[in-house]
Structures are given as C-alpha cells and as structure tokens.
Design a protein around this nucleic acid. Sequence first.
DNA 1: GTGGTCTAGACCACG
DNA 2: GTGGTCTAGACCACA
Lengths: 125, 125, 125, 125
Amino acid sequence: MSVPLRIDPSDPTPPYEQLRRQIAGAIASGGLVAGTRLPTVRQLASDLGVAAGTVMRTYAELEGAGMVEARRGGGTLVAAAATARPEPQQNRLRASAEAFVRQARSEGVPDADIIDVIHAVLRSV
Amino acid sequence: MSVPLRIDPSDPTPPYEQLRRQIAGAIASGGLVAGTRLPTVRQLASDLGVAAGTVMRTYAELEGAGMVEARRGGGTLVAAAATARPEPQQNRLRASAEAFVRQARSEGVPDADIIDVIHAVLRSV
Amino acid sequence: MSVPLRIDPSDPTPPYEQLRRQIAGAIASGGLVAGTRLPTVRQLASDLGVAAGTVMRTYAELEGAGMVEARRGGGTLVAAAATARPEPQQNRLRASAEAFVRQARSEGVPDADIIDVIHAVLRSV
Amino acid sequence: MSVPLRIDPSDPTPPYEQLRRQIAGAIASGGLVAGTRLPTVRQLASDLGVAAGTVMRTYAELEGAGMVEARRGGGTLVAAAATARPEPQQNRLRASAEAFVRQARSEGVPDADIIDVIHAVLRSV
DNA sequence: GTGGTCTAGACCACG
DNA sequence: GTGGTCTAGACCACA
C-alpha cells in the first residue's frame, strides 16, 4: 500500500508542513512501518514539483521529532523507536474520516452535504 | 455553547488561516447558525492576542466565500445563504471523499462501516 | 507598449482597488497577454509610492479572481486561463448590458449604432 | 426619463462616492438639466438603503463642486451655472458605452465576451 | 530576490 | 463603536 503524497499550492500552510503532516500521519497511523525507506529528497521533490530544500526541511523536522532517521551515505528510514506498531484498522479508518470531515467543514461544506457525497461515492465508485 | 477560538503559535499555518478554518468549520457543522453575530474584529483580536488586521483578513476571506456578511457600522454576521457553494469545492470535496472511500475499501471495510464512522465523526468532532 | 499604472490620491476609491481595476482592464482588453510577468510587488510599490502591502493586496485579489498567478520565489504572471470566469459576474455583466441597451433604445438609437459605438469604445479605451 | 441610482455594497468605492459619480455623470451628460429638483436626503437615503449622512455628504460634495444648489428651507436643485446644456445624444451614448466597457473589463471580461453579450441582449430584449 | 504574513498604530466611512 | 484601508518595517518560505 503506497502512501499518496501531494501538496496544495492554494493552501496557505507552507508546503514543507503539508508534507510533514502527511508523512507524520502515515507513520503514526501505521501506514508507514519502522524501517521503511522514504523516497530520496530529489526524487520526492521532483515528484511533487517543489524545490529540494522544501523536502529537506520536511525530513529534517521529522528527524528532529525522532520519527525518521537519516542514514549517513544515503536513505531516510522510518525510525524504529518512535514508530507506532500498526494500529487496529478501526483507528486508522477513524483518523482518515476525521481528516476528511475537518477539511470539508473548513471549506464550508455543511454536514448534510458531507453525508450526501459519501453516499454518492459509495454508489458510484 | 460558545465556540472556542484559539491560535496555536507553534503551528506553521498562518493564524488568519487557523482562525478561518475554525470558524468555517463551526458554520458548516451548524455550531454557528445563520444570523449569529461574530465577535467584533478588535474584540477577537485582543482576546487572541493578535493584530486587528489578522482577524480582519480572516473575516474578509470568510466573506469572500459567502459564509459571513459584514455590515459597516454593524457587526459581522453568519450569512443566511451559508450553504450555497460554488462548483470548484464540490469537485475537491468529491475527490477527497473518493480517496477516503477507496482507502477504506482497500482495507476491506464494508460500506456500512464507512457510513457509520462518518456519522460518528460528525457527531464527535 | 507598456501599461501605465497610476494611482489618483484624490480618488476616494482605495488605491489597491484603483490598481486592481487598471490591471484587470488591461488583461481583459488584451493589453496584457497570458504569461506576461507583472512588476514585482516591491518594485511597483516603490514606483507608485505606496506600501508593499497595498500592491500585495491588489495582486492577491487578482489571483483570487483567477486573472493572475503568483509563484513563490518567481514573479506574478498573467494567468493562462484568464478567460474562464465564474457565474455571478456573467449575470452582472448581462444586467449592465441590458441597462445600457435599454437606455440607448429609449433614446431611439438603432441597434446598428449601439454595436458601432461599443466597437468604437473597445478600440479607443 | 428618470435617472436610476443604485449603490453596490461589494464595491470598495465608498457609497457616498458611488452616488456622487452617478449624479455628477447625469448632470454632465445632460441627463439632469439645470433647475431639476433632486430627491430629499431622507427620501433618497431610504430608497437606496443607506444612512442619511451618506446622502448628505454626496450632496455636500456636489454643492462644493458647484453642480448643485441647496435652497434654504428645502430642496436641492441642479445648478444653473455649472450645468451642461443637453449634449447631442451621440456623446451621451458614447459616455454610457465607455462606462459599461470599463466596468466589464475591470471584472476581467474579455473584449470578445463584451461584444457577445451585447449581441445577445439586442436579440433578447 | 520574490511572494506572503504579522504588527501597531493611524485615519476614514458608516450608523 | 464597527468595519475597512494604509503605512513602515520585520520576518518567513521558496527558488
């Protein structure tokens, strides 16, 4: 299961932070387990269309938080120490749902519409 | 039940945007109903310890999104038509919903549980 | 042929709006074509003798209207899709056009002359 | 031929100035001839949904410019001195067309669309 | 160097 | 008193 990363240029939250949250979230929720190798700085930068410095900063912050370990001579790995054991799927599902709901509400979508769109998607996808 | 607004200085998301999301979320979730009067710009600014211009910008963005209505000399009110929303967001909402649903299904979560968790989150968040 | 921008201090219309109209007009009329790079915020500010924030606001509003695209570290460009415009304005445009046409007709101006004068103005203004 | 006055709350130009321009324009173009009596301050204020002070300021500015004369004991008249003789309709038509085009462009409407909407209106009205 | 945000205080328009 | 704008300068994120 790959972890899809993307940055929204119209979001005032700086790109390095958008990225940090997504990766941190994936680690905390067990989507990324200890020892997993993260993409190269340059690789990820070009994938996302951002400057290398932006990705570097993201990795640096994650390392500062102990969630990631930079190996001398190449490669950034998800840290063993601070990593979460894969949690029961219920919690991950819940976390995803919360993220989705929060975002929708922040865009002014009323609760009723949130429910509607979920039903619509379940029907169509 | 008043709506608690707060700013996290350690969050790289700019204060005006943190505020915007909280108010937008409160309106979308029904925590703030149409016609409710928001705190005055200067009042809220001094409560939060930020400059008046910061709150002004938050209100301005909400007004631009049609969620709020500012009256000169009067205050700032939650807009009556705070539900009708333009196209673009509908598409983004749909895309987010699809991503969420796909992920859940890929983990074997039954549709009924997807709906349940959304309702649970709407109630609790 | 460069586009002369100027601010009239004696005009009660706020400077950021005077500027916005001039640039928007230039784009709409084709005086500024897609991809053209606008002056930097600080450059234009010092040229006009206003604070940088004033120009920033102008650019921000233009970006919100989709007429301009700002790139961090790069400059501010005339947007490629500077033509696709949302609904509401179409209605306002239509209303203005109807008012204009009604007035002209009520004075006995033939349709052909109405068209002629519009073309003449588009050429000269 | 009545002169339609309206204020646009979403226009950053202050209401007293929006009003001033419309009346001044009507006088200059001959739409309002010398001696014509303007509406009462209170009357106009309630018609437009603005405060009386706003209309008072408008009238005061027009009087300062000599375009209008306040009569002791009631009534504001279009001044004889500075008033324009009714101009040939060609010029008035042209002035209206220019105002329409400027507004449309300031909203980002491309020239082609301006022409289109005029044709559409001519067909439908 | 370029866009973007924040501040602190001043002044204006409106009710 | 309430919203809205401007200034002047500082600091941040990005390329």
